[in-house]
């Protein structure tokens, strides 16, 4: 269900905010970062390609253990070197924002242990909600097909 892709797919996605959301760097004190957050949000919602500054250096070349193990990706706010990161999970038609933080989660052992534990239940709820949406959509499609297949009176 989680996509472990290094980049955000170029297709429109809905953005969920996990109820465990936290902003640990205090974006209220960093208004200079807000436009970068907005660009990321706009690109994800519209399906446009994210700018290069949003992705880490060495993407697709070096390993990102957090992504490969847990499907949690991070996007940079402002520049590829920035220490302000948006952590999120990508799904086929959605993304879920978890938190804004620095590189702290890459220093824990194992990598991402605190992040994973902090958001575990909230991510379960996001995924249950997405699964519910998918099930609803399937039901609608099945109903439409069934109606279309019924002989017309």
């Amino acid at each position: 269900m989680r996509l472990k892709l290094p980049r955000i797919q170029r297709r429109p996605k809905l953005v969920y905010i996990a109820d465990s959301w936290r902003d640990t760097i205090g974006m209220a004190q960093r208004p200079d970062l807000l436009p970068f957050f907005d660009v990321i949000q706009d690109c994800i919602e519209s399906g446009h390609e994210l700018p290069r500054w949003a992705y880490r250096k060495g993407i697709g070349v070096t390993h990102d253990e957090l992504l490969e193990e847990d499907g949690i990706m991070h996007l940079h706010l402002g520049s590829r070197d920035s220490n302000e990161l948006l952590y999120l999970i990508q799904y086929a038609d959605h993304v879920a924002y978890l938190e804004i933080n620095n590189h702290l989660h890459f220093t824990t052992k194992p990598i991402g242990a605190v992040l994973r534990r902090f958001h575990a239940k909230a991510v379960d709820r996001v995924e249950a909600r997405i699964a519910g949406e998918v099930a609803d959509r399937l039901r609608t499609v099945k109903t439409s097909i069934a109606k279309g297949l019924l002989p017309k009176r």
Binding site: L14, Y16, A18, V126
Partner: peptide, 16 residues
């Protein structure tokens, strides 16, 4: 059982 909420479609100022 708090709910995840949908940011898509929300007014940007409200989202911030």
């Amino acid at each position: 059982e708090g709910k995840a909420w949908l940011a898509t479609g929300m007014d940007r100022t409200e989202l911030h």
